[in-house]
Design a binder for these strands. Structure first.
Lengths: 210, 210
DNA sequence: TATTGTGAAGCGGTTCACAGCA
DNA sequence: TGCTGTGAACCGCTTCACAATA
């Protein structure tokens, strides 16, 4: 198959497959069929086979998929078989929480620099990282090889943070601030707001009531 | 229209609309057309009109939508025009970060109890909340009126936490642990894992390279 | 024989185009 | 006149069904 366009939903599911496969591996499973993996992920088995087929033929007919091999293949397909260096802008509650969240390292995302425009914060250290003024992004990005920007500012500062990142030639942005940002179209942006999920739960509960 | 079934994607977009509308209101806008709101949200204007039409007729033909009124209507539609009481299980890094994240209150989600099975943590306080053993959920849930469960345990503890929540008749679950959980079908579950978004960014950057 | 990989069918969400209305 | 609300057309993802094959 090896298709050109890959549905966004597929990427989201691949993340789920990795999660479930890693737990399966921890429990000692070496091989798994699309049918069993499907049940563990609450999706259709054809869905899994199709998702994987976008990137290659990873299975063995009559047998299934080798778990460790499949994890590696998916990670390669997503481009997360290496370390991505990240710049974090906005060292507030959310920013500090992310700096302390050691899963970043484990999952291949290294926060290599932290920025904040608050003079009281500049110069202070968090998790071995000195907080720097965002104006220094332009120099530091190429020096440190920063590729992904993480915005954790208040909403009214999000666009300014985005502008700094764009000026510094960052290649992708993940925005935790509750505000939309505008950047050139070649720079992918992902918005993270877990209140979406809380709203969804609230809605589903409310719906079930009547 | 007032449809029976509402696409999940619509709920996600309504959360975006609220975010953008609140920022518009802060900037002094009182009325907005679907066309302008669409641009601010990076979606199609028919999309917005259709999403809203699922819940009622909130606009004025020839004029647009009254911003404050629309925010209220959307919040009513989602069932977030009231406070939802939440139980948090797993007071690790993520759990503490959420307990300190004051947006929960502002957005109508009150974390009213915190649970952890670690004897070293039980009895300690975080943000005016005493950490309690999860076995007490069954009593405390009805006492405190807990409706939504927030799982922030390590992955291998997620299912156990889910079981406690189900036993306590919690009505919906939001799971931050990187593991799938099984609960009865009438209980909605939402998974939150912002590494999904990092993977997506990494993939999009990688894709743009070749 | 069991399970993958995939063309074709089905289905649900998105966009269009315009009628309806302030 | 301008913008909303909505049936119809469109499009793309999901599921089915089965041929391919270890």
């Amino acid at each position: 198959m090896k298709s050109e366009h890959i549905p966004k939903a597929t990427i989201g599911r691949l993340a789920v497959y990795i999660q479930v496969l890693e737990n399966l591996l921890r429990d000692g499973n070496e091989v798994i069929s699309s049918e069993k993996l499907a049940r563990a992920c609450s999706v259709n088995s054809s869905q899994i086979r199709k998702d994987l087929a976008y990137f290659g033929e990873f299975g063995v007919r009559g047998v299934g998929y080798y778990v460790q091999e499949l994890i590696t293949s998916i990670k390669q397909s997503l481009g997360i078989d290496r370390v991505w260096k990240c710049a974090l802008i906005g060292v507030g509650n959310m920013g500090i929480a992310l700096l302390r969240h050691h899963d970043f390292e484990r999952r291949g995302f290294h926060i290599a620099a932290a920025f904040d425009c608050d003079p009281d914060k500049i110069g202070r250290e968090f998790e071995d990282l000195e907080i720097v003024c965002p104006t220094h992004l332009v120099e530091q990005a190429p020096e440190l090889g920063l590729e992904i920007g993480i915005i954790t500012t208040p909403p009214d500062r999000a666009q300014r943070a985005a502008n700094h990142l764009v000026d510094a030639n960052i290649r992708g942005i993940i925005n935790f601030a509750p505000a939309r940002i505008n950047v050139p179209p070649h720079i992918p942006v992902e918005y993270v707001d877990f209140f979406d999920h809380l709203y969804s739960i609230a809605f589903q509960i409310t719906l079930g009531n009547d």
